[in-house]
Amino acid sequence: MNIVVCVKQVPDTAEVKIDPKTNTLIRDGVPSIINPYDMHAIEAALEIKEKIGGTVTVLTMGPPQAETALRDAISLGADEAVLLSDRAFAGSDTWATAYTLAGAIKKIGFDIIICGKQAIDGDTAQVGPGIAEFLNIPHVAFVSKIKDITEQTLTLDRMMDDRYEIVEADMPVLFTVVKEINVPRLPSLKGKIKAKKIEIKKMTNAEIGLDVESLGLSGSPTQVKNIFAPDIVKDRKMLEGGVEEQVNQLMSVLKELKCV
C-alpha cells in the first residue's frame, strides 16, 4: 500500500504579505510551517498505515528550504520524503502545481493520495482535485472521517456546507481532508532522530520528464493582475429613540428587506 501525502510549506501567519511590484508572496523573514490542513493529511495517512500497513511518502514541491517541512513530516512518522525542486517549476499556479505533482506521484507509485483541503496561503483548494484529474483517478474532497478501509476500498464522510455525504471509493483514489478528521500527533523521538539522518530524495524535471512548456510560469494559465485585501465595507444604521420606537423602526427595516 503506497500512501502519498502532498504537503505544502507555508508561512506561519494568516496574513501573507504580497510584493505590490511583482504580485508574488513575500516569504522572507516569516517562519515556515507545514500547511495546517496537511498536518491532518499526514495524520490520516499514518492512521491508515497503522490499520492496514503500507508506506507513507510525503511529497512537496517548493524551494530547497521546503526540505524542513519534509523532515518535520518524517519526525511525525512518515517513511519517505520527496522534494520536487527545479527552477523550471518556479511561478507555478494551481494548474501547473497539480500537473507537476501528478507527474511526480506517477513516478513514486500510489494507491492512496491525501492532500489538505486547501493551503492557508494560496487558499484555492484546487491542487488536490487537480492532481486527481491529471492522474485520471477519482477524488473525494473535504473528507471529515474515514469510516472504513479495506485493501481495496475506502468509505469516507465528506463534509459539505449543509450535510454529510458518505462516499465509497475504490483505490487508487485521492482525497483531501478537513480539520475535523483527526487530531495530528506530536513528533516521536524515533521520528525526530530519523528526521535528522534521513536523506531526502530530490526530484527535478529530468527525473519526471514532463513537458517543459507546461511547467512553472510558462505552464501557468493564470495571470496575476493584482492581489489585494478587499476593504471591508460595513453599511450600518443606528436606531434612536425609546425602546418601542426602536423596535418599530427595526420592524419596518426588516419588512423592507423582506426578512419578516
Binding site: 500527533r185 506530536l186 513528533p187 516521536s188 523521538l189 524515533k190 521520528g191
Partner: peptide, 8 residues
Amino acid sequence: DALAKADM
C-alpha cells in the same frame, strides 16, 4: 497515549 506515541 501521547507519551507512548512520542516514544517517551
